[in-house]
Design a protein around this nucleic acid. Sequence first.
DNA 1: ACGGTCACG
DNA 2: ACGTACGTGACCGTA
Length: 887
Amino acid sequence: MKKKFFILDGSSLLYRAFYALPLLESKSGEFTNAIYGFSNMLVKLMTEWKPDYLVIAFDAGKKTFRNEMFAEYKGTRKPTPPELLSQIPLLHEMAEAWGISLVELPGYEADDIIGTLANKAVDNGCEAYVVTGDRDALQLVKPDLSVLFTKKGISELKVYDVTAFQEEYDGLDPIQLIDMKGLMGDTSDNIPGVPGVGPKTASKLLAAYGSVEEVLLHIEEIAGKKLQENIRENQQMAILSKKLATIRLDVPVEFDDTAFKITTAGNELTRFYTRYNIKSMLKAIQPFISEGVAVEAASEERLPECQVINDASAAKKLVDECRQAGRISAAAVFSGKIPSVALTGLGVAVNGKRYFVDVSTKGDFGQDSLFFDENAAENELWKILKVLFSDESVVKYIHGLKNYYHANVEVTGKVYDLELIGYLLNPASSKYDVSELAAAFAPTLTAPEKGTDIYNNVSWQAFALEHFSEDMLHQLEEKELEKLYNDMELPLVDVLADMEKNGIYVNRKNLHEQSVAVGKTIADLDKEIRELAGMDFNVNSPKQLGEVLFEKLGLPVIKKTKTGYSTNAEVLNQLRGEHPVIEKILSYRLWTKLKSTYLDGISQLIDSGTNRVHTSFNQTVTATGRLSSSDPNLQNIPVRTEEGKKIRQLFEPGAGYDYLLSADYSQIELRVLAHMSQDENFIKAFKNNEDIHARTAAEVFGIPMEEVTPTLRRHAKAVNFGIVYGISDYGLSQDLGITRKEAAGYIDSYFEKCKGVKTFIDKVVEDAHAKGYVQTAYGRRRELSSINSSNYMQRMLAERMAMNTPIQGTAADIIKLAMIKAHKMIKDAKLKSRILLQVHDELVLEVVESELEAVKSILKDAMENIVSLSVPLSIDISMGKNWAEAK
DNA sequence: ACGGTCACG
DNA sequence: ACGTACGTGACCGTA
């Protein structure tokens, strides 16, 4: 029996699969529907056709080429959706996972590779099969060479052998298809053909003469004067069109008896479909993979029973097992609030087994923090187990390291916090809890149902961590993020834990007094507003307020929102003078914001034990690498208005400390921009320690520094901000209240003067389009999946993110490193002073008088010298008896 | 749960 | 013609 050689048209199948299936997205953000469809096709071929050889032909070359290729398909000239383009690298991965050769040759189209190889396979004594969604391939049909044409998307295949072809094409010889095209053309492929010749005429001519060349030799005989004339005038076109339609059979590729055989390695295949979360495929591939892997894929059913450790000897045995394995995967349960947190339960996984240990001090595990007792004796089982976390020979795979620090667990040696690693791999995700990570990295592991008891739940988490950590670390290495983890995110955990534990003192008495006073102000304003409006309503309700202002009072509508009238500050400011109530409403808004968010909001979060607020610094929230702060958010305490500053006054040094000290980077983002862009003007200005916005104004408006007015400086400042945010003329015009044209003019002259910035921004955006992600100077990555979107708005947004992220993110990286260094220096110097807050470009410390100079010099060193850029980094230090004074 | 609003860098 | 500045979190009212 002849061996079967299959060659697949990669681009046409990918395209068909993409449009046949709804858009699927893996947990880590890649689109996968085309890959899913393609995979189903492979499975179908493998089971129903049992090929001996199978290869995929694909077009090599630039993305733009691929763009055109897809764009011309089916006569639609729409740009190829980025969601499809983004799956091309996955196609390569998929082929590799299957052990299938992917044949690409720069300068040759997939069609020609397919034609050549199919024919060579036939010459080698094979039956050749071309699998494609492109009808042009039918010209290849001959004895022993069939075309499998996709139908209904890709779910069915129609077989064209010589007989089937001739049945459908009325006795035409397959190779005559190219003569057909030569005569009638093909609009979708931009092949012109002969005007006035359609399928009917072309068939008739070919039936009579056999080929384009023969037709041209017999022009005089052709019936119909107009037709004769058309053919005569378009002889060249007919020949060229035929040539364009002809699949070449002379591509320099050889039939490779070894490489073209399928060498499916089961674990690669499992890993691939696991990574992209294509669950159904994990079942479908079972017949093709070895037994060992089948077991791994079926682990869903093989979740071991949770063993509960409740005596010392079992605990010791577990310690021994982890030590011998050199690793522990653990998920912990904590109770209590910072600064009083206790570890109360521990799930452990090792060697594919899972355990649960109840380590709560009173054996009341599952109760909440009300039962926390810091004087309670340490749990006996925990005493035995905790040594694992400080054993240098044991690698720890855990989740949420900061909580361990809060619970005073000593964790040393090699530690992998999979939460942090998940964040580095995809900072755009919103959650990194174990079940979320499992869904992304180990989709065969089904998370326990809601309501599952804590023993099973936590031990499952440990089991899951052991299961997918290897894959995550592999990706960390592939994306070159290890350094970022080891030198930045991991050491930062200790710093943040200390800051959160420290908290910041709040003057409760003053806070309460302010709250009462502001409450009175608000009540008065509320009354006045209702009187001025002539009716009762809830001023806090934008809906009701809108109705009062724009319907009852008939004020002009400035702007609308999705749901109704806009009543924001910008709108209200424009309505000032139209009605006396407007002023009152603005004032009401200001005071209620202060009271509800800052006075009463923070009041609720003051720890009654320490009289301090212990914010959470979230390390895995922002897409750019910044920290965020919550419960309460101490990164948005008012500072811009006088009323707001009163809030800052409430934050004071605690007992035993003398001052709050603030150290903030001067213009760090613009300095980063100067460094990354190597723009001469910016570098010079920063090196000379000039007022950067004034310098920008001088350059952009072409005047000497002395003539820069405050207004011009303000405008230049706005442009600088705009650059950092990802400039758009519209945004700038809104900010400055100028026309869009004027804004565009500003941007033009800015780029004219700052060529380096222009070049840099263009390069960043271009790279983002090519790679689908952007990076900070330290290699932190942010995926921008909509950067090639066909939706203008989405694409523009992604481009602004592309411009902003390297700048904002690099600045965030720098201050993170500075925090680590400052924290260490303070510790090494055994100072009592300590870091309390980080506000993106500022650190707030609590200091004792005697250490002032030491602290200042440490901060200067740590913050200014942490990295050497092309421009100096500079910090301003100020201090006072409260946070408002330290500004 | 979501949109509108507003506080910060 | 379209309609946006980048990154966050908390509160309120409304669905």
